[in-house]
Design a binder for these strands. Sequence first.
DNA 1: TGAAAAAATTGATCTATGATAAGAAAAGAC
DNA 2: GTCTTTTCTTATCATAGATCAATTTTTTCA
Lengths: 190, 190
Amino acid sequence: MKSITEIFKGLELTESEYTFIQERCQKLELSKGDILLEKGQPTLSQYYVLEGCLRSFFEDTHERDHTLQFAIHDWWISDYTAFFDGNPAVLTIESIQKTTVLEFSREAQIEIFENIPKVESFFREKMEHSFGAFQKRIINDLSKTAKEKYLDFLQTHKEIETHIKNYHIASFLGITTESLSRIRREIAKH
Amino acid sequence: MKSITEIFKGLELTESEYTFIQERCQKLELSKGDILLEKGQPTLSQYYVLEGCLRSFFEDTHERDHTLQFAIHDWWISDYTAFFDGNPAVLTIESIQKTTVLEFSREAQIEIFENIPKVESFFREKMEHSFGAFQKRIINDLSKTAKEKYLDFLQTHKEIETHIKNYHIASFLGITTESLSRIRREIAKH
DNA sequence: TGAAAAAATTGATCTATGATAAGAAAAGAC
DNA sequence: GTCTTTTCTTATCATAGATCAATTTTTTCA
């Protein structure tokens, strides 16, 4: 069974440290379509995906949605702006298949950091990598065509791609489903 | 004279802590057009802007450049992907006017963190906010028209706008200077 | 397994922004 | 203060991707 021993792999935590962490997080089971975080709500937690797939998205004023992030096994997800500064969420997080997550509240996280300092470094490193991923995403958005973005997505999200509907990929790339469909035909031809 | 006392305002550091930090950073004077970091180089430092203005940008395969970030007084800048994971820089950082920065190497930073822990928390918070800014930027890129992005830029970069040429703003927004010019005319009409 | 719902594709047209090419305005240099 | 260079604007035309409207394919589940 997938559990917290997996999250901190590489850290070599003791039994008691694991227990300490385990007591401060909560396992949640989600069905396809369930909403884990609703925009407008306070964002008090960060989530670790054990199994399944989530996506975070932004609904614009025209009721169109724009996917910020997908998260499968071993990924973290939240509305980080909201989580960090205490504002209500601007993102919604939904389960796009049967998913199991571990929920860590801000307080739990701080308590864990204070008691097991190497977990804080672990989190900082995770965040540094996410930061890099965001930087790369912005560069891609600025410099690539829709087709190039799609090809890049297939590369960088290899393990994810099969879980996800094309209309969600389109929403991540910032194009319509129709355009994605044409791009796919283009690619298939060659 | 602007100096490191300003960087960590709110932290209430002692004289000796300031000295410790001061001995581990380096003040650099840049003229307009100087390159602080060149793509392809190892990225060993992070920079704090005392005065002036820098921009980081990405050069694509068509030799077009795309601005990721501007930094004026009291902002930090680097190629964070490169800085964090040790890869060569993909970004170039140039001075777009006479600028003074403080350079902190990765090692200096770690040494400072180890000796003055509250500085580590200070940096983590800085990074959390930058993270939020990147999240917002991606959402804007996905959901807004060029005109909306420009109006948003004027809001969020109020103090910066006067330092920056329109062609750099266009490069930040992901549009051509000609398009920006049209947008500006549009806005002026109303 | 077969009907209903969801997702993907296709075609025709439209539109925002890009490309190219001048010219005008502003900023710097001497 | 004028000359040169840089930056900004304008006009025209081209194009990637959006929109609208079906239709086909795939998935779901009774």
